[in-house]
Simulated assay, not measured.
Amino acid sequence: MNIVLREMRANRKALIIWSLSIIAFVAMGMVKFSSFSAMGEEANEVIEVLPEFMQKAFGFATISLTNIRGYFSIFNMYFILLLGIHASMLGATIIAKEARDKTADFLMVKPITRQQMVTGKVIAAFINLVLLNVVLTVTSIGFVAANNDGESATGAIIAMMGTLLILQCLFFSLGLALSALTKSSKKASSTATGILLAMYILSIAKDLSDNLDFIKYITPFAYFNARDILFNRGIEGVYVVISLVVIIIGLGISYNQYQRKDIL
Rank of each mutant, 00 (worst) to 15 (best):
M1P: 11
I3L: 13
V4K: 03
M8N: 14
M8P: 02
R9A: 09
A10I: 08
I16D: 03
I16S: 04
I17W: 11
L20G: 02
I22L: 15
I23H: 00
V26P: 05
A27P: 02
S34D: 14
F36K: 07
A38K: 13
G40I: 06
A43V: 10
E45R: 15
V49N: 14
V49C: 01
P51F: 05
P51N: 09
E52T: 13
K56V: 00
A61C: 00
T62W: 03
I63F: 06
S64K: 13
S64P: 07
N67P: 06
I68N: 00
S73G: 05
I74N: 11
F75E: 00
N76E: 10
M77T: 15
H86W: 14
H86Q: 14
H86K: 14
S88W: 01
T93Y: 08
T93H: 04
I94L: 08
T103W: 08
V109A: 13
I112A: 11
I112P: 00
R114V: 04
Q115P: 02
M117P: 03
A125Y: 07
A125V: 09
N133E: 15
N133K: 11
T137C: 12
I141E: 04
F143T: 09
F143E: 11
V144D: 02
A145F: 09
A145W: 12
N148A: 04
G150S: 15
G150M: 10
E151T: 13
S152Y: 11
A153H: 05
G155K: 05
A156E: 15
A159C: 12
G162D: 09
T163R: 11
C169V: 14
L170G: 04
F171W: 12
F172T: 01
S173H: 08
L174E: 02
L176P: 06
L178F: 12
S179D: 04
L181H: 01
T182Y: 08
K187W: 09
K187D: 01
S190T: 12
T193W: 01
G194H: 03
I195N: 09
A198M: 14
M199R: 00
I201S: 04
L202T: 07
I204C: 03
I204N: 08
K206E: 13
L208M: 12
L208W: 04
N211A: 15
D213M: 13
I215Q: 04
I215R: 06
Y217K: 11
T219K: 06
P220I: 12
Y223T: 02
Y223F: 15
F224A: 07
N225G: 01
I229A: 07
L230G: 05
L230T: 09
R233C: 01
R233H: 14
Y239V: 10
Y239T: 10
Y239H: 08
V240E: 04
V240R: 02
V245R: 00
I249F: 06
I249S: 05
G250P: 07
L251C: 09
G252Y: 10
Y255H: 00
Y255W: 11
N256Y: 15
R260V: 11
R260L: 09
D262L: 11
I263Y: 10
